[in-house]
Nucleic acid binder design. Structure first.
Length: 927
RNA sequence: AGGCGCGUAGCUCAGUUGGUUAGAGCGCUACCUUGACAUGGUAGAGGUCACCAGUUCGAAUCUGGUCGUGCCUACCA
């Protein structure tokens, strides 16, 4: 074995082996266990969020597979309509072409080409994480089978009247020329202005105080051209007389009414609001209530259309805004301009300002689907982990709006609807079917709806469409409902809720029993990772490492804003002066587990990854030690507790406790606790203590061959079991090491991933051994403490005396003499009876046992005095607190008996220790 | 404006139903290349658990408030 762990050399090999041998497919006849992957964008790239979630899903899958469940982690990707179309469009534009130029058919072909070309990048990256996905069942939302499910669902919902076409206000992206859902709109506060305009009253009307106009304020002056009314509050006395009268809308030559509506806040501004029903969601509602005209003033690219007066036609919305303000000013109607902070809605893909826009779209009538979906969570059929995300779910579901599912894109599932020349709609699987069903002769020209469905529409069907519903039901029947969905809170609305609704509707089953919501992966300062901040980490770079220059290049490539480039470069060179060394997959995964406590975001700390890389190396070297000491050596056939050393029994017992803790952590989705337990056991118990305790036994083989053989066996078998315990979290290193270790134990098996997961075995728990080793550790630590603090060279063997303990302590000394001598590097260790005089010595305590390191030539008296003084004051503080408690009658009366007993024991122990140390300190003073 | 979190060592985080002298990793200090490992070993320093009040024999933990901070939802033109 190499001297250090080299992940690069073996990860690829093992993954290919697992995959090619079909280990990822479910097998056996255990209870099915299933997770479906949240489908990543087929042309996307792996990011830290994927890395985190995949680490968790893989641990769950491997864990359950080893528990002999038929484990299926269903893999697939989605077509990411807008994102993918944008990428290909940008490529076309860069080549001087456009999608309009080449036409729909050619364009869609190009997107497919792009999908073929880049589609396996992310799946290869997912493999690098060690994810044990069943690639033989890989699906894509636009596969024929999945597409047919999409069609079926659309048609069935339509026939039930749950899908309808409506002309309404939607969020319109003027760059992408498509409707987007309100979930895809990000409203952030930006600096803007509030323009105050005077609107002249028509027919010579005046306000109560004699003014011939009223003043309104707007953040979007250009919408003036689409105004249909001015509204005031019905109880607002200032304007009561004006309700029912009219305004001469400036620049437009239109009269609009003054209406009264509760929506208006009389306290805000002048208490008068202009109403633009075709360009504002609130105004739209008011418009409907008051039956106002809708003036749509925009084209689909947000330039002004022919509805507006000639001078403004064709102007871009922002140019129009300037023009309107200028024209109002020269008309003397601009009252004032105030700076104003407002939330500006932007498309999360395009980044441009979204316009409320009146269009025809397809909708899902959602209420009847939402009701059972709410109930499923209320009744506990589906549980969120952590539970408080259920509130988020309920809040949204109880106030749910119909879902706009059409998108004006070319890439996606085309809506299976046809129109005749009178715009009658026919929905069906294809044109021929539609014609036949509705008896439409060849003379009637039909055209298919141009739009495609929202990507989330197909994602909502993911759990059952990927498992073969409705026709090929074998896997569906076996694995559905799935066991757990692992995903981020950001798509509870987009995806989780919609899956629950659609799956219940069509299969009558819940899609999953649990929803494990992960936190967001942030950078080390708690900042969200984003391209524009330049703080993105690529999981693959953490695995393989990356040179600084390449990292800078990567982070600053195709920046929209070049001025950010310098900043990002500087920041990056500052954060990673030497680039990033590769830590390997297992270390990266373990970092995710260790940070995955529920209910909070994780700040990704590379320091921890480095620590776990070191942990891998520790495992590696422990294995190296075990192999060096067992290859070609005799080991006992079985583990016979009677032939085992106390240390052997101890480590086996400790292993059981670790196995139990891991099991508990896994059932509670506490991956951080599992990771912590494993780290603690392997490093602090197996490596730090057990391996060290094994050395005196192995090196004493001539004198006690049977003991050495037993210890060898326990070293090996505990290592082997630990590897299995670790495997779901660190698949690669455990496989590599297991392949070397298992044959030593004559364990047959092709792969650790098909081995059974260690189960807690209470019979192996050995209290006696644990007490003994605790005693041993206590004595050794006390001696080491003296060594360390007294500056005694670690190489120097020293004599030690023990005294004051009971006969049990004395027996332990005899039993563990060999260990003590070796691990504390002792020249000798002897028991002093009470009548023997103690030499001048540095003193430590463990329980009642006093540990004496003779001073002669070794100890600096002043240093020992300081050490004792420190120890004493620590004890005094503790004792004081304990005595205060015990002196309090209310405590003694009220606290449970065992708590009081515990305090009393503490008191006894502390005061005897204190007495002993004070005694020593006095003795020192006499020298 | 409502809702949900968070605030524990220099940094990243644990801390079960209130009962410890408040823990881990990284970093830091000192010593050490001893026959698995310097990606290591041994020892050590470091915390008024944001603040205030309350409940309790007892609060990092429960309650109320304050401050700071993050996110989500709805928004007043």
């Amino acid at each position: 074995m190499e001297k250090t762990y080299q992940p690069q050399q073996l990860e690829d090999h093992w993954y290919k082996t697992w995959e090619s041998r079909g280990y990822f497919a479910p097998s056996g006849d255990g209870d099915p266990y299933c997770i479906v992957i949240p489908p990543p964008n087929v042309t996307g790239r792996l990011h830290m969020g994927h890395g985190f979630q995949h680490a968790i899903m893989d641990a769950l899958t491997r864990y359950h597979r080893m528990l002999d469940r038929q484990a299926l982690w269903q893999v697939g990707t989605d077509h990411a309509g807008i994102a993918t179309q944008m990428v290909v469009e940008r490529q076309l534009n860069a080549a001087g072409s456009s999608r309009q130029e080449i036409g729909r058919e050619k364009f869609v072909e190009k997107v497919w080409d792009w999908k073929e070309e880049s589609g396996d990048i992310i799946t290869q990256q997912i493999r690098r994480m060690g994810s044990s996905l069943d690639w033989s069942r890989e699906r894509f939302t636009m596969d024929e089978q999945l597409s047919s499910v999409v069609e079926k669902v659309f048609i069935d919902l339509y026939n039930e009247g749950l899908i309808y076409r409506g002309n309404r206000l939607v969020n319109w992206d003027p760059q992408l020329h498509t409707a987007i859902s309100d979930l895809e709109v990000i409203a952030e506060e930006e600096d803007g202005f509030l323009w105050h305009f005077n609107y002249p009253l028509a027919d010579g009307a005046t306000t109560a105080d004699g003014s011939t106009y009223i003043t309104i304020a707007t953040t979007r002056p250009e919408t003036l051209l689409g105004d249909s009314a001015v509204a005031v509050h019905p109880d607002d006395e200032r304007y009561a007389d004006l309700v029912g009268k009219f305004i001469d809308l400036p620049l437009c030559d239109r009269r609009i009414p003054i209406i009264a509506d509760d929506y208006v806040d009389p306290e805000f501004g002048t208490g008068c609001v202009k109403i633009t029903p075709a360009h504002d969601f609130n105004d739209y509602e008011i418009g409907k209530r008051h039956d106002l005209d809708m003036h749509n003033i925009l084209n689909s690219d947000a330039s002004l259309n022919d509805e507006v007066p000639a001078p403004y036609q064709g102007l871009d919305r922002f140019a129009a805004r300037k023009q309107i303000v200028a024209d109002m000013e020269s008309a003397g109607l601009l009252e004032k301009i105030e700076p104003h902070k407002l939330k500006v809605p932007r498309g999360d893909r395009s980044g441009v300002v979204i316009e409320p826009y009146l269009t025809h779209q397809w909708y899902v009538a959602i209420q009847s689907l939402a009701d059972p979906a709410i109930k499923a969570v209320e009744d506990g059929d589906i549980e969120f982990v952590p539970k408080n995300w259920e509130n988020t779910y309920f809040a949204w579901m109880r106030n749910i709006q119909d879902w706009c599912i059409s998108r004006q894109l070319w890439w996606g599932h085309r809506i299976p609807a046809w129109y005749d020349e009178e715009d009658n709609v026919y929905v069906g699987n294809n044109e021929a079917e539609v014609r036949a069903k509705h008896k439409l002769g060849d003379g009637i020209v039909l055209r298919q709806d141009e739009d495609v469905l929202d990507t989330w529409f197909s994602s909502a069907l993911w759990t059952f469409s990927t498992l073969g519903w409705p026709d090929d039901r074998e896997f569906f029947d076996r694995f559905h409902p799935t066991d757990v969905l692992v995903t981020g809170f950001d798509i509870i609305f987009f995806w989780v809720a919609r899956m629950i609704m659609m799956t219940l509707k069509f299969t009558g089953e819940i899609p999953f029993k649990k929803v494990y919501i992960t936190g967001l992966v942030r950078d080390e300062h708690g900042q969200k990772m984003s391209k524009s901040k330049g703080n993105i980490l690529d999981p693959i770079d953490l695995i393989d490492g990356i040179e600084l220059d390449e990292l800078v290049q990567k982070r600053t490539a195709d920046m929209m804003q070049p001025q950010l480039k310098q900043k990002i470069e500087k920041y990056t060179r500052n954060s990673f002066p030497d680039g990033i060394v590769g830590y390997g997959t297992d270390a990266l995964r373990f970092t995710f587990y260790s940070l995955a406590s529920t209910g909070r975001d994780i700040k990704f700390d590379l320091g921890r990854t480095e620590g776990f890389r070191n942990f891998c190396n520790k495992i590696w070297n422990a294995a190296r030690y075990v192999m060096m000491n067992s290859e070609d050596k005799v080991l006992s056939e079985t583990i016979d507790p009677n032939k085992c050393s106390i240390a052997d029994r101890w480590i086996m017992s400790r292993f059981e406790q670790a196995a139990k803790a891991v099991e508990e952590a896994m059932t509670n989705y506490r991956f951080d606790i599992a990771a912590q337990t494993l780290h603690e056991f392997v490093w602090n118990e197996y490596c730090d203590w057990y391996v060290e305790l094994s050395k005196p036994v192995l090196w004493d083989e001539e004198n006690n061959p049977e003991a050495a053989q037993a210890t060898r066996r326990v070293l090996l078998s505990t290592l082997e079991k630990s590897l299995r315990l670790l495997h779901p979290f660190m698949p690669y290193i455990t496989e590599e090491v297991w392949q070397k270790v298992a044959p030593q134990l004559a364990i047959a098996g092709e792969s650790i991933m098909l081995q059974p997961y260690p189960q807690f075995d209470n019979d192996t728990v050995d209290r006696e051994a644990e007490e003994q080793i605790e005693w041993l550790k206590g004595i050794i630590v006390a001696i080491r403490n003296i060594r360390g603090e007294m500056d005694i060279s670690p190489g120097k063997a020293i004599p030690v005396f023990l005294r004051h303990g009971d006969t049990g302590d004395q027996q332990r000394l005899e039993a563990h003499r060999l260990y003590l001598q070796k691990l504390a590097k002792l020249e000798s260790i002897e028991w002093l009876t009470e009548d023997q005089e103690a030499p001048a010595a540095a003193t430590g305590l463990h329980g009642k046992v006093e540990i004496l390191v003779p001073l002669a030539g070794l100890i600096n008296v002043d240093a020992e005095r300081a050490r004792l003084t420190k120890e004493i004051s620590k004890l005094e503080k503790g004792l004081e607190a304990v005595e205060r408690k015990l002196g309090n009658a209310k405590f003694v009366d009220n606290a449970p008996e065992e708590v009081v007993a515990k305090e009393k024991e503490k008191q006894a122990q502390m005061s005897s220790a204190l007495a002993s140390l004070r005694d020593k300190l006095n003795g020192l003073d006499k020298l």
